[in-house]
Amino acid sequence: MERKFNDLHIYSNLSIGQNSVADIIKTAESLGFSSICIIDHIKDKNKDNLDNLREEILKHKTDLEIYTGVEISTEDPEIMRLQIKRLRDRADIIIVSGGSSKINRAAVENPKVDILAHPERGRKDSGIDNVMAKLAFENGVAIELNFKFVLHSYRKVRAHMLSHMRTNIILAKKYKAPIVITSGAESIFDMRAGRELASLGALINLELSEALNAISSIPEDIIIHAKKVKDKNYIMSGVEVVKKEDM
């Protein structure tokens, strides 16, 4: 069976990206993706632009499955929790922009978060430790390997970035936390085909099959899990309200 590739982290010009939704769809089709998620970047307490994004997506006819998500970028865990509460029902996927220790910890502790993006950004260490990796597994929060940061860095910075990613992969593999590879594209020229993203993962401590899963089956699981969490009957992992007729 042929693998279906999914890129869960792309920005359009309705957020911080440079290209229109139409351009993104065209490029994703030519790169052979089966689904993509267009992300709205929300800084601190700002309001989202999800309705406009969804309207824009509906204008285009395509075979691609297109999801909408938000990336919450803040330094305050309390604001992060409030934004998640407000947006969980409206967005398909919730990404928390990692970097600071407080946010990384708060994100992996929260089962309503789908992806912790770039936990190593702007740090001198990898951003997660063994406790956080264990929490990520327990709460089903995927650790992201963001291709954009590798693409836009050079020499020393890129080497540091890759070495932090290696540490995160070792931790995630040891504690069985899900790893997801995304392009993090702000422009269509940051997008790459699924196998290319996987080959980059295969260079840094991932087996090729694991790297391919990180861009195909794990994103699919995240989408399925996110749909489940949005359901009103869902309370927590393993606890759901079941109607009498269904039993």
């Binding site: 590798v150 020229f189 196998r195 290319e196 080959s199 980059l200 295969a202 260079l203 090729l208």
Partner: peptide
């Protein structure tokens, strides 16, 4: 895989 990754990193 190495060559693929290297050409994917061309901007």
């Amino acid at each position: 895989q190495q060559v693929r990754a290297a050409i994917a990193l061309i901007r």
